[in-house]
């Protein structure tokens, strides 16, 4: 059953802005906290392990510091948590609190983008459809960029940072454009160009894709990290999209859930 609500047109613009921002903040806050719990239980142990490997290889290389002094000075920002020369949170509670903050901000950012999409769409979004939107978000922001640039453990060496960031952002943007064209394109040509937009960054290729990836951690650890970070991202997008539907669409949680089960 679909409930149509009629709002007062005079206040619509104002309330939409407020509704968009408040529901983005709330959906992000809840999802970010959930991601943080998963991060601490699943991902942080792997990051800690990787940093032990990284420190081992760092101390090895610092023994030969006289030899590759030039190398070190040529890339001065192997910026890292343990550098000591600059501020970084202390291990333990402080570091976890900053991780919590970063996860909440990330989840708020994704929620705002998703709800802005809902606002442009303008119609009611059911829980099932909302989860489809969330699936597109997962593919655009986690899976497809990860296809070329899989999640890295600390210490892994890859291509130039700027190149990778640019490729990541381009891939995410083109993926959103692609999914929008496929979902909302009226003509077949538009839908087809959506598929092209999805494929384009991968045909072009991620920076450093042709060179061997290396790092001090074991390949098994890195593989586990990639799998688990994708899993956490998937859970995050399920949380973000369902929370956004419940809060922004003001769907009754129980009715939304049962109508979802009834399908």
């Amino acid at each position: 059953m679909r409930v149509t609500r009629i709002r007062f047109p005079a206040t619509r613009k104002e309330t939409l802005m407020f509704k968009l921002l408040s529901s983005g903040l709330l959906a992000g806050l809840i999802s970010g906290c959930l991601v943080f719990v998963l991060h601490l239980t699943l991902l942080q142990p792997l990051i800690t392990q990787a940093e032990i490997f990284e420190e081992m290889s760092n101390s090895k290389s610092s023994e030969n510091v006289a030899q590759d002094d030039k190398q070190n000075s040529s890339k001065p920002d192997t910026h890292h948590v343990h550098d000591g020369s600059e501020w970084s949170p202390h291990d333990g509670t402080e570091r976890s609190l900053y991780t919590l903050m970063a996860h909440i901000i990330t989840a708020i950012a994704y929620s705002l983008l998703l709800i802005a999409g809902f606002a442009i769409y303008g119609r009611n979004v059911s829980l099932l459809k909302g989860l489809l939107w969330g699936g597109a978000g997962f593919l655009s922001f986690s899976f497809l960029p990860g296809l070329g640039l899989p999640a890295e453990l600390p210490g892994a060496t890859r291509a130039d940072l700027m190149d990778r960031q640019l490729w990541w952002l381009t891939t995410a943007f083109l993926s959103i454009v692609g999914f929008s064209l496929i979902a909302f394109g009226k003509a077949n040509l538009l839908r087809f160009s959506g598929v092209i937009a999805l494929a384009l960054p991968h045909i072009y290729g991620a920076p450093g894709a042709d060179s061997a990836m290396s790092g001090p951690s074991s390949p098994e650890l890195a593989a586990k990290f990639v799998m688990l970070s994708l899993f956490v991202s998937a859970i995050m997008w399920i949380a973000i999209s369902s929370m956004s539907v419940f809060i922004y669409m003001r769907t009754n949680v129980y009715r939304g859930f049962f109508s979802f089960l009834g399908r």
Binding site: V35, H39, L43, Q44, I47, H79, V81, E86, W87, S88, P89, R95, Y98, T99, M101, A102, H103, I105, T106, S142, A151, E152, L153, P154, F225, S229, V232, S233
Partner: peptide
Amino acid sequence: NAAHDARHAH
């Protein structure tokens, strides 16, 4: 440095 672990996770 503040967002380090979260950046890796995402």
